[in-house]
Amino acid sequence: MSDATPRNRATKEPPVRGNVLVALHRDAVAPRFDRATEAWLGRIDGEGGLARSRTMVLANASAEELCRIILTENVSTVVCCGIEQEFHDYLTWKRITVLDGVVGGRDAIIGALLAGTLKADAVLGGV
């Protein structure tokens, strides 16, 4: 337990591009992927700009439902806080980048996404 997270995180990640989903609870990232009540969906273009965005309110908090949305919306990057290994592996197997352990408010996360500085385990403002 000397390290913050024993997992082997990538030290240098390329800026996020394409469709992004942020698992939300109220105005901040949800503490858990499977307990997210809303999902922010955005598209970051090649220049790093926000092409379009919308927020979906989920009927029920469910990891399976979020996975279904991620696949149907062609999401390439998922931002969340706690996520079970099972769902992390599934999304990774589907060639989706999962930035987990992220803590922060919705605006702070979107700002970091657009700035290309968002990384796994990032602690941002807004919470």
Partner: peptide, 28 residues
């Protein structure tokens, strides 16, 4: 608690507890 949450004390300090424990009851 550090062992259970797999989180260092430095990282957990001053975070809202829901992001440290990530408990099923945190949201409801």
């Amino acid at each position: 608690a550090c062992a259970l949450t797999a989180m260092s004390r430095e990282r957990a300090l001053n975070l809202p507890c829901r992001y440290v424990f990530r408990c099923s009851l945190c949201t409801v």
